[in-house]
């Protein structure tokens, strides 16, 4: 009996590892290609296409990125600061709202839930949002222009969290604490929050990725304040120029000159590498802590 289950467990482990190795390879191979092409001589890249074994190596792309214009270190710093603040603030307001929505006794819960979900479906559009943030809240060219619009909290995260509170944090435990004399704040902090760690870690990750990957806010809300550029702002402006030129190449006589003056393929690849490299380096550490948090939260009952 016991032997049988071990055998089955073993088979599962082997099969599971094989599947995950295949998936990991599928994810990693294109990224290795990305890395190699960023170190490939540009002419070779244009001539022979992308290759795992380039004819000619070159660090020109990185030289270009590190020497031209804005400071990369500063942009990295901005990205980290923004992501950190965004995660902390975003997580706080998301968790609190979701916790409230999970309270079945709360009057008006249905209406508020609906209002939250409604924002997932309808929005005022870019122009009215811009006018709101720029003319009413004056976030243009400030750090808040990067932090506030869109990314801090979204209905999806709130609903995910709410559903976790409903299903993963048993009411009985909370009620017991309440009856024992803990107030709502204490119940939340001491009991609900620790029990919800897996989802807290997940939502933190989602918010963090959202901030790290975002270039739109910088694109729209920063014009003069180039010192606030995050790494994605820096990298994406060039991509956007390419797109602009392609759209207008039939009307702009200078488009061809412009396209030729835009850094070539290897530089675009190097930019992408610069964008995800810090994540690759830092993620394991974050994950370590997350996993600890998750397992702590998981052991219960």
């Amino acid at each position: 009996m016991k032997r049988k289950s071990v055998g089955e467990e073993g088979r599962f482990q082997i099969l599971g590892n094989i599947i995950m190795i295949l998936l990991s390879l599928a994810a990693v191979i294109p990224l290795i290609l990305l890395l190699i092409s960023s170190f490939t001589d540009d002419s070779a890249l244009v001539r022979n296409g992308y290759s795992f074994f380039p004819q000619q190596w070159s660090a020109y792309a990185y030289q270009y990125i590190f020497t031209s214009g804005n400071s990369l270190t500063r942009a990295y710093l901005m990205s980290f600061v923004l992501t950190a603040i965004g995660v902390v603030v975003g997580l706080a307001i998301t968790t609190l709202l979701a916790y409230g929505l999970s309270k079945k006794f709360l009057p008006g819960r249905g209406v508020i839930t609906f209002l939250v979900v409604f924002t997932m479906l309808f929005n005022g559009g870019l122009v009215p949002t811009y006018m709101n943030y720029v003319n009413v809240f004056h976030v243009k060219d400030t750090f808040f222009g990067l932090l506030l619009p869109g990314l801090l909290m979204n209905a999806f995260n709130v609903m995910m969290m709410k559903s976790y509170f409903v299903s993963g944090v048993p009411d009985e435990i909370l009620e017991a604490a309440y009856i024992d004399g803990a107030n709502e704040y204490q119940t939340f902090l001491k009991i609900a929050f620790p029990l919800a760690k897996p989802i807290v870690a997940t939502i933190a990750l989602f918010i963090g990725i959202g901030y790290w990957n975002d270039w739109m806010n910088g694109y729209v809300y920063l014009s003069k304040a180039t010192h606030l550029y995050t790494i994605q702002n820096l990298l994406n402006r060039m991509m956007q120029n390419i797109q602009f030129l392609q759209q207008n190449s039939s009307t702009i006589s200078g488009a061809n000159t412009g396209l030729a003056s835009i850094p070539a393929v290897s530089v675009r690849m190097a930019m992408a590498v610069c964008g995800i490299l810090p994540i690759v380096v830092i993620y394991p550490f974050i994950q370590n802590n997350f996993v600890k948090g998750i397992t702590l939260g998981g052991v219960k009952g």
């Binding site: 307001i93 998301t94 924002t119 006018m131 801090l152």
Partner: peptide, 17 residues
């Protein structure tokens, strides 16, 4: 506890709505 989140929804979503 829900207030900060709701304020954000008003600012970010309902004011431009």
């Amino acid at each position: 506890m829900m207030l900060p989140g709701l304020i954000y929804l008003v600012i970010n979503n309902y004011m431009p709505m």
